[in-house]
Amino acid sequence: MTDTPLLEVHDITAGFGAVTVLHGVSFEVPRGSIAGIFGLNGAGKSVTMKCLAGVVPTRSGSVLFDGEDVTRMSPERRVARGMGHVPQGRQVFPDLTVEENLRLGAYTLRRRNRSRYQAALDGVFDRFPVLRDRRTQKAGTMSGGQQASLAVGRALINEPQLILVDEPSAGLSPVATLELDAVLQEVAKTGVTMVLVEQNIAFGLSLVDTAHLMQTGTVVHSGPVAELDDQTLATHLGIGRVLQAAAGSALAARQAPRPKEKARARRTA
């Protein structure tokens, strides 16, 4: 059982109306590994993520989670099965307090086993002490980096087997991105399985073990990050991305500022 990948995606297609966005996406995520999905705008990264979450229906193909076919399962039942989410744009509930956000994050844990909640809450507070200090503060009034911590903590508290992280750096300031990087590196050390979608290649490559490169709705390259070379990146993501990745791998901590990166992406597109 433990040999089977935690997540298996077999040839899924999906789209909206007459438009097909995913033309047969396949990849596997072994237990304890961190997979990254990279690609240009419109390559289908986010839609893939939404299919994994169950928010966008798949038209064909299948998604196996922990050996179980979850292709037709609702998002909330997938969460109950052990999927966790750090949604795009770190969607915390702004009008709820930090603790209420975490309590909602533990929604299915509390239904499974209410007595575990307090320990799980303490675990998150130990990992992110800032959340303990601000437990009664409204989430919307915290800084971007703190909200990112909350979004990650809200996913962790439910004791998930798999965490789907969708474009975590999108819309964050460079400082907050650094904070988030530290948070996710910390989570990666716990051995939890993660799938990460990221525009910011340098940021993404610093976190993941395996990279899946997407182009026009299919996975065009899958392999360990260690074996990725500039040629592969340039072929599938465009030359601007290579420059950015090179800058990133040389000094992963010092990110290119967002506006510049966006301009580059536009030039290469």
Partner: peptide, 19 residues
């Protein structure tokens, strides 16, 4: 709490497991 949160962000509510 799920009802209050759904008002703010219905999509995110499903992603924390609230039906």
């Amino acid at each position: 709490l799920g009802i209050l949160a759904a008002a703010q962000d219905p999509a995110a509510v499903r992603l924390v497991g609230v039906p």
